[in-house]
């Protein structure tokens, strides 16, 4: 794709991120973060990572907004305003230099959709060629998730289950 539509999307992303920092009260910041997640999901969709876009839309724009709002509701009204501290001088000096360093390091990353990048030559060909013979699963993604990385998925599930229990305990209405 010659036309790089991601550039206007990335400009929108920067605008929304800056707006979420600049804005005065927290509920507006939460809403602006919701629009940030929408734009980020569009970026993922444009780059072809459809599943990541779906997760970003559901978790970032939907669930995160709801959780932020629940937190704001349980906080007292004086906590929902932002009292700004003056930015220290070292942050003004150091953070742009850190950004420049990261941009400089990003020069070494492989090109987008480069077939010789380390991620595509390490284990991906083996998964694509032999996963059906080894695991008898028709979907490659499922075989990687459930067979090759089964323990990873198991413990991830445990983490998410624990987080769900913690949320349910914290958000009980009659816990007074």
């Amino acid at each position: 794709m010659i036309f790089s539509f991601e550039i206007p999307l990335l400009i929108l992303l920067l605008l929304t991120a800056a707006g979420a920092i600049i804005v005065k009260d927290l509920i507006s910041a939460v809403l602006i973060l919701g629009s940030y997640s929408f734009v980020l999901a569009l970026v993922w969709a444009w780059l072809g990572a459809v599943d990541v876009a779906f997760v970003e839309a559901v978790v970032g724009a939907g669930l995160a907004t709801v959780f932020f709002l629940l937190t704001l509701f349980n906080a007292s009204p004086k906590d929902t305003e932002i009292r700004r501290q003056p930015v220290p001088f070292i942050a003004f000096l150091g953070l742009p230099m850190l950004g420049l360093l990261l941009l400089f390091a990003a020069e070494d990353l492989p090109e987008f959709s480069d077939p010789k990048s380390p991620a595509s030559v390490h284990v991906s060909p083996e998964y694509l060629e032999q996963s059906y013979q080894k695991t008898d699963t028709e979907n490659v993604v499922t075989s990687v998730l459930m067979d090759y990385r089964g323990f990873d998925t198991l413990i991830e599930t445990a983490v998410i289950f624990t987080a769900g229990i913690a949320c349910a305990l914290l958000l009980r209405r009659d816990s007074k």
């Binding site: 459809v50 724009a61 939907g62 709002l69």
Partner: peptide, 17 residues
Amino acid sequence: DISTGYALINLVGSLAI
């Protein structure tokens, strides 16, 4: 499919707000 999921989740977010 994704845009349908988007629309549903957006409804939940609006309701929460």
